[in-house]
């Protein structure tokens, strides 16, 4: 019952976000601020993780290829497929649920408990639009983050496989181009876009509707991380079923 209530409340929140708009000049500033905090601020950790995960994927594949009949190019092929299809879009989004998601929940939540949201409302400002709309727009640039992650993941795989002496550079590069299906990229970016919307709105919901004090802000961030991840994982399953099978 309370889940049904929360889901209803969530969709009402989305409706409110697209209700009365905040003054344009102010919104523009807020959007740039959010892009800076949510997107630019995440590039470091995303690059770091992508590069090393890409490397590990390549090493794992190489170590498990003992059969001489299987071509070494498979290392590059396998790394490319797993990075583009899952590691970059899904794995990185779960990391972002921890980083960006908790940040959104705790920043909106602390505005709730210190009555800053009431202050906005009293001034006649649509606080949902003011707080959440800029985050949604900023997250439209999230696919760039995932593109960078894909690229660095593959660079990491190359580095580990070639510099690690598992496979020659030419073979790796040719394996990378084997059986390339453009639709896989389309699929990956459709997912990414949906995840971006989840990452912007579910943590915002947990912050906006929280009750209590500073301690509860911490709880809300944790709950928000759990729910954001769960929804990402389920959505990933559904989208994969719909688009790939």
């Amino acid at each position: 019952m309370s889940y049904v209530y929360s889901i209803g409340e969530y969709f009402l929140m989305i409706k409110g976000v697209f209700g009365r708009m905040t003054k344009r000049a102010v919104l523009k500033e807020l959007i740039f601020k959010e892009i800076n905090e949510l997107i630019i601020g995440s590039l470091g950790i995303v690059s770091f993780i992508s590069f090393f995960i890409g490397g590990v994927v390549a090493i794992q594949t190489a170590l498990n290829l003992n059969n001489p009949l299987i071509p070494k190019a498979l290392i590059a092929f396998a790394a490319r497929q797993s990075i583009i299809l899952e590691f970059a879009p899904t794995f990185i989004s779960i990391i972002m649920a921890g980083k960006v998601g908790s940040f959104i929940t705790s920043s909106i939540g602390s505005m709730r408990v210190t009555e800053q949201i009431d202050a906005l409302e009293v001034m006649g400002i649509n606080s949902l639009n003011y707080l959440i709309f800029p985050k949604i727009i900023a997250m439209l640039t999230y696919p760039f983050v995932i593109a960078i992650s894909m690229f660095l993941g593959i660079v990491g795989a190359y580095a580990a496989a070639v510099l690690g002496g598992f496979v020659g550079s030419d073979i790796f590069l040719s394996g990378l181009q084997d059986n390339f299906d453009g639709f896989h990229l389309v699929y990956a970016f459709i997912k990414t876009f949906i995840f971006a919307m989840i990452l912007a709105t579910i943590p915002a919901y947990h912050g906006y509707y929280m009750k209590g004090g500073a301690l509860e802000v911490g709880h809300a961030s944790t709950t928000s991380f759990v729910w954001t991840s769960v929804v990402i994982i389920i959505t990933n399953y559904v989208v994969t079923q719909l688009l790939l099978s």
């Binding site: 210190t114 009555e115 800053q116 009431d118 001034m123 006649g124």
Partner: peptide
């Protein structure tokens, strides 16, 4: 809604805890 908003533009409120934007 519109009337409420118009009224709220004429309201000044000091919250007990200040409610300044951090």
């Amino acid at each position: 809604d519109v009337e409420q908003r118009e009224l709220r533009k004429e309201v000044g409120m000091l919250f007990q805890g200040g409610a300044l934007f951090d």
